[in-house]
Design a protein around this nucleic acid. Structure first.
Lengths: 224, 224
DNA sequence: TGGATGCACCGTGTATACAAGGTGTCCACA
DNA sequence: TGTGGACACCTTGTATACACGGTGCATCCA
């Protein structure tokens, strides 16, 4: 999704389209919890706030529907989707199904970890030390995504990535509320890398299983 | 996706929106191969053909992008996506990953096949006898989707269903070109039902594996 | 004759005006 | 006082007009 342009990407203005601005503003507003869950969004109001007409706003809302941020009810408008604890668990289960499959295949074919793994792990540890949660979160996504894509199936790669924006909705919150988990995450990443290096499928999968369960466990603590 | 409304659904007009009409017309035109792969679609032309203005057409194109039918190139427009044999294989692999996971869990929990299974199998055999390929194809989707959803994870269910429109793009073609495969498909469905009934995970999975490979094998025959 | 530059045309991106449908309120009547 | 219906307002759905940017062609210069 790439809300909140990272410091690196936010350079010169590439003449961002109005639709893109609307998409990012509305998307991050939902992430930030500006709108109540279940609330209907008024296109005209949004347009005013973004500083454009309704047209780009409508297109942004359609994209947000595709990403499951809102529900488009005919003649009623865009309703902010309610994210339940159940759905969160399902998203993480889905992640595990796809990523563990990738890991198994990577080990079967003795591919080893993706080449950029080491670099990513170190970048994450730096971001962690600097308490830069957004950066940390994004790098975590790249780390896992690179594993899934290393397996070679682009369709599964896309699907895996599409789960990201949905989990981010709670991910940042959980991360900032439990930063002591950071060292655990980092250790697990290194363990996973080592297991992939050793082409040990079952071990890799069990590490991933524990690793991915980390977050939903946290979520459940303060779920509705 | 529900192009070509089935005979059952096509009853009285529920005041279908212009966007929906545009979506179905353009979508089925792509399925029918009316446009060349890689071709850029002209919004104004499409609007004229659908009988509406450009606005609903644009919204339809955005949805078709989400479903991977077209690629939206900024300032250039909607390009009909090229479907390669590789991508087809990847889609079927993805299906297998999700559905086999569902099957394994269904057997682990001793849930048995979904209640509607028997009914669906019989409806498919009727459709097959009547050489009604669209009906057959849709029922096949419902059959497999019901298995995935029987496992209980709605997110994985949605993802699985989203793969459908993409594979339909070649599915109908392969079906009409190889109708002798019909009895094989029907037999495998019954075998799968029996294996689920017996809570036999490995057997169910291996049946599914063979079953799902059927189509991409056909595809490869006349791939580029 | 080949390449580069500028201009014109065309198609997408955005804004705005208009149409249609639904929701809530207010009034009338039981 | 409660309930039912009609009307008005408000919001989405669609059409159209305008702005912006890119592509391709033609012309000019080397």
């Amino acid at each position: 999704m790439s809300h909140q342009k990272s410091t690196a990407t936010g350079g010169s203005k590439p003449r961002q389209s109005a639709r893109e601005r609307a998409y990012e503003m509305i998307g991050s507003a939902i992430l930030a919890g500006t709108f109540a869950e279940g609330e209907f969004l008024d296109e005209a109001v949004l347009a005013r706030e973004v500083g454009t007409s309704r047209t780009p706003v409508r297109e942004a809302l359609h994209r947000l529907q595709a990403e499951r941020f809102v529900e488009l009810v005919p003649r009623r408008g865009a309703q902010v989707r309610v994210v339940t604890a159940t759905e969160m668990r399902e998203i993480y289960q889905a992640r595990f199904v796809i990523e563990s499959d990738a890991i198994t295949k990577i080990c079967d074919r003795r591919l080893g970890p993706p080449p950029e793994t080491r670099e990513l792990i170190e970048a994450m540890e730096t971001a962690g030390r600097n308490r830069n949660w957004n950066e940390f979160s994004q790098l975590d996504q790249v780390f896992h995504s690179s594993i899934v894509r290393h397996q070679g199936n682009a369709v599964l790669g896309e699907i895996y990535d599409s789960l990201r924006p949905r989990q981010v909705r709670l991910g940042v919150r959980t991360l900032t509320e439990g930063p002591e988990r950071l060292s655990i995450i980092e250790r697990e990443h290194r363990e996973l890398e080592a297991a992939l290096e050793g082409h040990d499928g079952p071990l890799s999968t069990s590490i991933l299983n524990v690793h991915i369960q980390e977050v939903p466990k946290l979520v459940q603590a303060f779920s509705r």
